[in-house]
């Protein structure tokens, strides 16, 4: 499998724009592809204790729920509550891809607090070790979905990634132009103080009205 830089801008954009139904079809296709091309990886996933691991990229709107310890191994992409999970891993998408591709050490990330682990640590450690046995390439595995058109797909993906990366930079520049650093943000604290004062005044006025009404009721009685 060829190793190449993951098209991060394209992946981020696709994960943001595409609906979960389409992403889930892609995820299922990737797992089916891995069953063909990397049977040992899938067998090692299946040998882990039965568990659902939720991988939550901090800069994507979706979470990935991977079911291991059974056949078939399943990968779901969800945009809401992923349901009960045995373990969780969280970090930004670039870090997570580096981890999957073996470019970075999980323990080092943990020492630096760049990776957050929760739930059953044995499941997370097992998953990390099983992945590290393989020399995976996210771009390569996605490209494999295109079959004989893989070279063309890679070229299109690279072009799209560059275009999206450029677009992102231009949008960021536009944002900086529209909101120059000199722009004073609204004084939130002063606004809160003003609201508090208004609430206090209204509360006092309400209390006075209630007292007046009470006196009237007593007089009429």
């Amino acid at each position: 499998m060829e190793r190449s830089e993951p098209p991060l801008a394209l992946l981020r954009s696709a994960a943001t724009v595409l609906p979960p139904a389409i992403l889930n079809r892609l995820a299922a296709a990737v797992v089916r592809g891995l069953e063909r091309t990397r049977p040992k990886l899938i067998a090692n996933f299946a040998q882990l204790p039965a568990a659902v691991v939720v991988v939550a990229p901090t800069d994507l709107p979706y979470r990935f729920a991977l079911s291991v310890g059974r056949r078939p191994v399943a990968l779901r992409i969800v945009d809401g509550d992923p349901g009960p999970a045995d373990a969780g891993v969280s970090g930004d998408v670039a870090t997570l891809i580096d981890l999957v591709e073996g470019r970075i050490d999980g323990d080092s990330l943990f020492f630096r607090r760049d990776l957050v682990i929760s739930g059953d640590t044995a499941v997370v450690v097992g998953l990390r070790n099983v992945l590290d046995r393989e020399e995976l390439s996210v771009a390569g595995e996605l490209g494999a979905l295109c079959g004989p058109l893989r070279p063309q797909a890679r070229a299109v993906a690279r072009a799209l990634d560059r275009a999206l990366d450029g677009l992102g930079r231009r949008l960021a520049a536009m944002h900086r132009t529209l909101h120059p650093p000199g722009d004073r943000p609204p004084d939130v604290a002063a606004e809160i103080d003003r609201c508090r004062g208004e609430i206090a005044a209204l509360t006092a006025r309400l209390a006075a009205l209630e007292a007046r009404q009470k006196r009237r009721d007593e007089r009429d009685a």
Binding site: R113, V116, I117, S118, G119, D120, T121, A122, V124, V125, G126
Partner: peptide
């Protein structure tokens, strides 16, 4: 410290 007995708990930014 077998992994099966290890847990990390995130609480208010602390681990």
């Amino acid at each position: 410290a077998p992994a099966s007995h290890v847990a990390y708990v995130e609480r208010n930014g602390e681990v």
